[in-house]
């Protein structure tokens, strides 16, 4: 069974983002970039399927600037077998719909049995690519997965839903999107990081695919959220309760 995992290079989750002065987005200059954390979980799950003898090959795909190679090398250092990079022009926004269309073109060629994606990218927080890709392929989808089992040509997936958990089965080929608790991704060891540099990385450009990736959204403005003014410090529980009573809150 072949597993394909799309990965995205995003601002590292520990970085406090700054809105760019022209309001076009956030400032990406000299900012630490990493693989999207949900995509790391997806890569880890695919590698575990391979280690369990269920998957035979793990292919990682990234769409973006040339620097997205870093995310692909990280995934291969974790244990992915090979990578495909689809380069886009610098500064061009590739929306989830366009990503899904490009991934569909890759999947038509690669014919994986399972795609595991992160549930959302922590930059635009759109939470859409996996679902859109499933729609374009006409495949089943199991989003927000916290547990994945492969049985008799189906994926049995426990999903994190409001108020608890839901378990569904989807026929393979299918798309699974990873939630936070699916697993804890491993750290790549130094020897594996070195080995990853020699693993195959196939480079294509978005123009190689007959796909319209024109953005549908125009950014009007980007702003910082209104600051919440710090309030007052109280000295005791009695004072706190008095303040809450004053405000009619208790």
């Amino acid at each position: 069974m072949k597993v394909l995992v799309p990965v995205k290079r995003v601002i590292d989750y520990n970085v406090k983002v700054k809105v760019s002065s022209d309001g076009s987005g956030v400032d990406l200059t000299n900012v630490k970039m990493s693989m999207n954390p949900f995509d790391e979980i997806a890569v880890e799950e695919a590698i575990r399927l391979k280690e369990a003898g269920i998957a035979t090959e793990v292919v990682v795909v990234s769409i973006g600037e040339k620097k997205s190679t870093d995310a692909l090398r990280s995934a291969m250092a974790m244990g992915a077998d090979r990578a495909i990079l689809i380069t886009t022009d610098q500064g061009v926004t590739i929306e989830p719909l366009a990503v899904a269309k490009l991934l569909k073109a890759v999947i038509d060629e690669e014919t994986p049995d399972l795609v595991i994606a992160g549930k959302q990218a922590i930059d635009n927080d759109m939470n859409a690519t996996g679902q859109m890709l499933a729609a374009l392929l006409g495949w089943g989808q199991a989003t927000f997965a916290s547990e994945l089992k492969i049985e008799d040509g189906s994926a049995i997936v426990t999903r994190e839903v409001d108020g608890g958990l839901q378990t569904i089965s989807v026929k393979l080929p299918a798309i699974v999107t990873a939630d936070l608790r699916l697993n804890e991704p491993r750290y790549a060891s130094l020897p594996n990081i070195m080995k990853a540099k020699k693993k195959p990385l196939d480079e294509k450009t978005a123009a190689d695919f007959a796909v319209d990736i024109t953005p549908r959204h125009t950014i009007v403005t980007t702003e910082e959220p209104a600051d919440r003014a710090a309030g007052i410090m109280v000295g005791s529980v009695d004072e706190l309760i008095a303040k809450l009573k004053e405000g009619g809150l208790v």
Partner: peptide, 14 residues
Amino acid sequence: PIYAGNALQTVKTS
């Protein structure tokens, strides 16, 4: 909101 609510973006869709 984008970036976990650390920025707010206004977008116009076509």
